[in-house]
Design a protein around this nucleic acid. Structure first.
Lengths: 213, 213
DNA sequence: GATTAATTTAAACGGGTGTTTAAATTAACT
DNA sequence: AGTTAATTTAAACACCCGTTTAAATTAATC
């Protein structure tokens, strides 16, 4: 056991930050290992390949977030009346912000990783998440469907992915948007403030009646 | 003048398709030139660098879309009563679908390029668009603000970017989502159908009242 | 048709990539 | 303490990248 932090952990910590900032393919192993102050070959030794390192980075967050989110959703679902969409989305705030306690800036890093993953991996991440966290995901989807019974399942499928796009793109550009907002409107929003802004937007969009013509 | 298509055009046609599918940095000049059946060095000869090729690919669409979109928005604005958000967003459908006539699949290619650009270029694309097409953009924003006067400007800034994220992420994953939708719900949506699905979602989200607590 | 300019071509350049190797070092165990 | 296993290290490997060069080819001009 080394006196300093575990090599594996040092790699993950450096990698997740760089992956979130610059994307997966734009981040070289040499950049990661130099930031982590470990040897280049240690990535392949501990993780096998860059692709598996990416998976490990994502899993470290998903393993915390997914069960926690499912618990919060179930707590809502057990309430006497069905929860509103706003309540369901808001139930995710606590699990998301708890990631900040796991690591500094964990919330936004996680959401940015998610967005990078969905866009860069051409569907591989979607498969990874549904096969590894499908149960937790189903809990969430069920709650949303029950809360908006007037939306047909196929339409809800699309709207939930609209929702994913909304938050994931927003977080990917959060820093740039915050700069503009500060310059133009004197606003300064942290991650939680942005999440609280986006939830009403998403809830309204998901619930809006389908017009059939 | 060659008997076949212009070299410059052949490069642009091959590049835009590959860029939209795999992203900018994942697409090598060698892949582009081999698909275009032109020599590798011709990219640097005609465009100077890969970065300038990317700009040229984007400009070819923006030069068509932006003026056309601005015209449609102004046409609405001249109508006796103020247009609804749904009408404003729907006014963009025609300019978007006209891109399909410019090139096969032009609409979705354009939207995917836009998304890739926003996420990969760390703000460079945002700068490029606002400096080159700022006037047309302002026309659109003004119409939206007038149509939802109950939303403060700072809040509208965020919501319009939520909107951008929604459509851009959706289009980036459109092929994958369509496959799932076809398998799970027997649906088959073309680009226009997806756009018509996403507009009510976005309009509802942009217009939802801000709760002040 | 000769001369000039524009374009295309094949080859090389310098540099960065993920991964592998084999030796050196450190840790764990009997 | 001596032996084995786990880890770290420096170096090299094979490959792909964007760009440049200089010669060959094609087009345009006088």
């Amino acid at each position: 056991m080394a006196s300093r932090t575990d090599t594996k952990t040092r790699i993950l910590d450096a990698a997740e930050k760089l992956f979130a900032e610059r994307g997966f393919s734009e981040t070289s192993l040499r950049l990661i290992t130099s930031k982590a102050e470990v040897n280049l070959a240690s990535v392949n030794y501990h993780f096998g390949s860059k692709k598996e390192l990416i998976r490990a980075v994502l899993a470290r967050y998903l393993d915390v977030f997914m069960p926690s989110a499912a618990i919060e959703i179930k707590r809502l679902h057990n309430a006497p009346e069905d929860a509103s969409l706003n309540e369901i989305f808001s139930a995710l705030i606590k699990p998301l912000l708890e990631l900040n306690k796991v690591r500094n800036g964990g919330t936004i890093i996680f959401l940015q990783l998610l967005g990078r993953g969905y866009i860069e991996s051409q569907g591989h991440l979607r498969w990874f998440i549904t096969t590894h966290y499908g149960e937790h995901l189903a809990t969430f989807v069920k709650a949303v469907v029950a809360s908006a019974p007037h939306i047909p399942p196929a339409e809800m499928f699309w709207r939930l992915h609209f929702t994913l796009g909304t938050i994931v793109f927003t977080m990917a550009s959060a820093d740039a948007l915050n700069e503009i907002a500060a310059a133009d409107y004197g606003e300064h929003n942290n991650t939680e403030a942005i999440i609280r802004k986006v939830i009403p937007y998403m809830a309204a969009g998901v619930a809006v009646p389908v017009l059939n013509n």
